[in-house]
Design a protein around this nucleic acid. Structure first.
Lengths: 185, 185
DNA sequence: GCACCGGGAGAACGATCGTTCTCCCGGTCC
DNA sequence: GGACCGGGAGAACGATCGTTCTCCCGGTGC
């Protein structure tokens, strides 16, 4: 097993276990066992657990950004539709089995007060979501605050869907977003 | 020091430390040192850390519910104003020094996947917030989904304010809530 | 064939944590 | 006054965790 595929397996495994149980409840040994990557190799690729956590979050950040723009480009044909399509994407995510909330919100809650790098990645990620909404609202000529408000709806949906285990918040947030978009015209 | 005042000191100290650093990063010994309550007494009042965590969350739940209704009764004179007053209350909370997000969102992210009692308290608390909004929207004759949407705005504001360290989300959410309330008339 | 190198499996180490136990002291009842 | 009780301070214990080390094996160059 070469270093590259080991890193991939470790990132996949760690992301899944962190989502399921939180970061601190998952030991490096559990990641080793679940991924099949030896501890020696694991520490070659990620020299500490903190760096692994950061790498998982950074990869997830890129994945979500790419998925958002891809989903927007595929299913929507205007700024308004692209903004609303975010909530359809959320609906699919919330419905995945084992969904337990946004990794950035959850990890920030657990480690944000102690690990500045975690807080920074979470901040960057949430800013990127806001910026994506801002692209669409700017194209509509809407006031800048509308992008923040759409982001609040999206983040609220993530938090509530994670805690309640329901996918409904996505549709509720989408309907609210439509009202806000219409009111800004 | 009697058991009652010891319990109070422990709850106050644990709540503050958990908010600052997360639950798992705070040892029982740190609570002992910061509260001045001996370990023996601490374990007499809260027989395990899990029970202490649950007690902290349950007390916080009651505190927030009481503060919400008190704030609504004091500053607002109609259902619409009472719903909007929630966001003013959020603004004051977000501006407190050291604010790092909602304890229920944060603790759910850290322990919700492993400790069912934590997940249950978080669910109850978020349901109570939704129910408070529902009281106001029902009084307005608005459709039930409006309460869910206002709750999404409030929870999104908590998450984003915690991560970004800004109090702005409260005002942004309030403005969005006003638009939704007006659209439902 | 053989020395050598990299990697796997898992033991080992030091730190920390939740929880319990020991020791000691001050107040209290008779 | 003296035996007793409850509580404080902190050591002790067992488990777990992040990280490193040891041992061993299989492949590779010559």
């Amino acid at each position: 097993m070469d270093a590259e595929s080991a890193a991939l397996k470790v990132l996949d495994t760690a992301e899944r276990l962190f989502d399921e149980r939180g970061v601190q409840a998952v030991g490096m040994d559990a990641i080793r066992t679940a991924s099949g990557v030896s501890l020696k190799r694991l520490y070659q690729v990620f020299p500490s657990k903190d760096l692994l956590v950061e790498a998982v979050l950074r990869r997830r950040d890129e994945t979500v950004r790419a998925a958002l723009t891809a989903h927007g480009a595929r299913t929507a044909d205007g700024p308004r539709e692209r903004a609303l399509a975010v909530f359809d994407w959320l609906a699919g995510w919330f419905a995945e089995p084992g969904f337990r909330g946004c990794a950035f919100i959850n990890t920030f809650g657990e480690l944000g007060g102690v690990t500045p790098s975690v807080a920074a990645v979470a901040r960057d990620h949430k800013e990127a979501l806001r910026a994506y909404f801002a692209e669409q609202t700017d194209a509509l000529g809407a006031p800048p605050v509308l992008a923040d408000q759409l982001a609040l709806l999206a983040n609220g949906a993530m938090a509530v869907a994670g805690i309640t285990g329901s996918a409904e918040p996505a549709a509720q947030a989408k309907a609210a977003a439509a009202v806000l978009l219409d009111a800004a015209r």
